[in-house]
Amino acid sequence: ADVSAAEHNWRFGNLYGRGTAFGEIYEDLAKNIETMSDGRIAVQVLYSGEGVGTSGLLGATKSGLITMGAPFQSMHAGELPAGIVEIGLPGGTDDPDELYSLFHEKGWDKVLEKAYGSQGLVWLEPYIQPPVYVLTKEPINSVADFEGLKIRAPGAYGKFLRNLGASPVSLAWSEIYTSLATGVIDGSIGSNMIDHRDGNHVEVAKYMYKLPLAGAQVLPIVVNRSAWKKLPEDLQKVVREATVIHAKEQLEKSRQWESEAVAEMEAKGLQWSPEPSEADKAAWAEAGAGLWDEYSAQDKYSKQLIDILKQQ
């Protein structure tokens, strides 16, 4: 990007490393904004660790240190609790059409615009990433096998697994591999299948459980409000359109990459735990449903989102 020539110089932070598959999708979003605005907006992409830490992305966008961010809401559970509901509570749907309708027709967009808006952020078109699965060292033959297992799972996912009798453990991401290898933990969730592949977790834990912890994850693109206000309306429209294109690309590519990641892990010895029974599925759903009220009580925007969910 030629920084000097543009009217607006944006910095766009994401959580993926330079040169990774997901990193390239964000690069595409940046390029689309540049070309669709005829170069009036220049976007510098900042990858993982480049100036802003993973848990600082939301705060950095609020303060304007970066202009646009693609945060992962679990990292900001204590800052913006509604994000945890937005990303998808355990037991939620994975149907893109249903999610689209929830976000654009049933009113989640209005609530989230307000929730992010209350912290000085503009909430743009969200996008879908693949579901969260749990990987264990021993096969899970029935839900009862979760009893007493130590599983690395932060926040909402930890609570969900606790409802199933497991003991959630807090660990840094970089400690997962050695902790699985040595047996500090019996299992771990990853933010998706691609994450498990990238961490090479299958070398040290072989068994993937069939039921996902969240059907699909919905992630936002956020923009610093004062930078947004500096854009004339036509450019605001351009950025919105670019995020819509981005959401489509995420959906297509992430499906493809997820299946590639699973195939690669299977080649390295990944095995699936046996097919869950109907009773297992019921216990799974029940563990997820128990969280709705808890989250609803914590935050007013979370409550509004969950109320809409309940009306369905």
């Binding site: 679990s74 800052e79 932060p154 609570k159 807090s170």
Partner: peptide
């Protein structure tokens, strides 16, 4: 103002 907490299950204030 926003009652910031840590991202964990325990979620103590910041």
């Amino acid at each position: 103002e926003f009652d910031y907490r840590t991202q964990s299950e325990w979620a103590p204030p910041m």
